[in-house]
Nucleic acid binder design. Sequence first.
DNA 1: CCAAAAGTGTTCGACGTACACCCATGC
DNA 2: GCATGGGTGTACGTCGAACACTTTTGG
Lengths: 232, 232
Amino acid sequence: MAREHAVLRLAVDLCILTVREGSLQVLVVERGNEPYRGRLALPGGFLRGDEEPSAAAIRELGEETGLDGTRLHLEQLPVFGAPDRDPSGRVVSVPYLAIAPDLPVPRPGSDATGARWSPVASLVSGGTLAFDHHDILDLAVERARASLENTTVAAVFCDDLFTMGELRGVYEAVWGISLDPRNFSRKVTKTAGFVEPAGARRTDGVGRPAALYRRGPVGRLNPAMLRSSMSS
Amino acid sequence: MAREHAVLRLAVDLCILTVREGSLQVLVVERGNEPYRGRLALPGGFLRGDEEPSAAAIRELGEETGLDGTRLHLEQLPVFGAPDRDPSGRVVSVPYLAIAPDLPVPRPGSDATGARWSPVASLVSGGTLAFDHHDILDLAVERARASLENTTVAAVFCDDLFTMGELRGVYEAVWGISLDPRNFSRKVTKTAGFVEPAGARRTDGVGRPAALYRRGPVGRLNPAMLRSSMSS
DNA sequence: CCAAAAGTGTTCGACGTACACCCATGC
DNA sequence: GCATGGGTGTACGTCGAACACTTTTGG
């Protein structure tokens, strides 16, 4: 019958992605506590008594970075539960992928000394991050790439008002390829509910002013955005 | 700083789907222990000390149903962690979607009195299942539907050798629509690595004998199978 | 012969790709 | 003018949908 149940703690880890300076970046913190004190890691913390995991993710997001989790896209990834993944004891981690526009990080964390954006490409595989956070990062990036194909979350990477060029920049940064601006624009505007024209235009220095858009009501993308070729 | 961590147990619940008699069915057990003794539920149990969640899922699969979990397709779904989801205490559940061919269920469970297949359609929403297992079922069915579009798991619903008609029957049962046999066959055989011809043919009573196939090496389906229309 | 299931050929239309071309701005 | 980015028009190819038609079995 029932043998001894595992005595464990449940952690929530956050992989917060954004697009800055044309590259995909992730929010990392320098750990202030053992284990792995001083090492870079994904922000996170333990689940409390009466908390849903998703509520814990939103709370940690606020505590460690000052970001408002209720306004971000949050997506749960498969749990990490290797018995020896945390040297301080049995901890199962519930990782979340969060997608944020390019925001400053106002409040440095309490448990962590300073949160900052780091390009995903500069965190070489198997290298710098504490725990198994590199595996979580890989999973989150792959999920983000897939989500751009089938959903409209790309717009969550942008501010409230954005141009086609900015939205296309999200796809190019996350997928690491370049897209044809003309076909991209048509595809997005012809997909009902993806974006809504905001009427205004923006002049960013050189070039013809671009029309501004805001997010539309539709979440799923059908037909999907195609990652294959479409290159320019 | 760190407030009290949640004291909790981690459960693993299994949503084992198969296609029997032309309909999508799920394996349910009658609970032998409190809470919800006597009610139908998804098979599952608690995580042990040195166990990965996925290993616990495979172990529970064997204990409660006698099925060999290492031969099935296993996919983790988002966790369920509402604080009051289990009246006996704080339990966070890691649900798994398992996909099985139409097999008998040899060994009745130890914790549960008798496992049996039940058509998904007959488990009316919000009705019979214990805990929040109905939400888990809905999630698993939706995931299975999506997986048929993008992966070759449909073949895992079938035996080692199967006909095009059987494979198509999986799609029709899981999606609840009918597909054009002629276009379906072409689409599958032209997707390299989905299925491999086994050479032999099978005569199932009436009609022209069907060629037999086995699973191919490819897991992801590109381009995807389309659920929209294609009806006959 | 007839019914039923397996499979092939073919036409049509939708859509993705590529690219020529025009528009509006800063310098 | 010229470079730069925004946006439209359009031709071509690919692929999914629909369906006529042939093949091979059982009754």
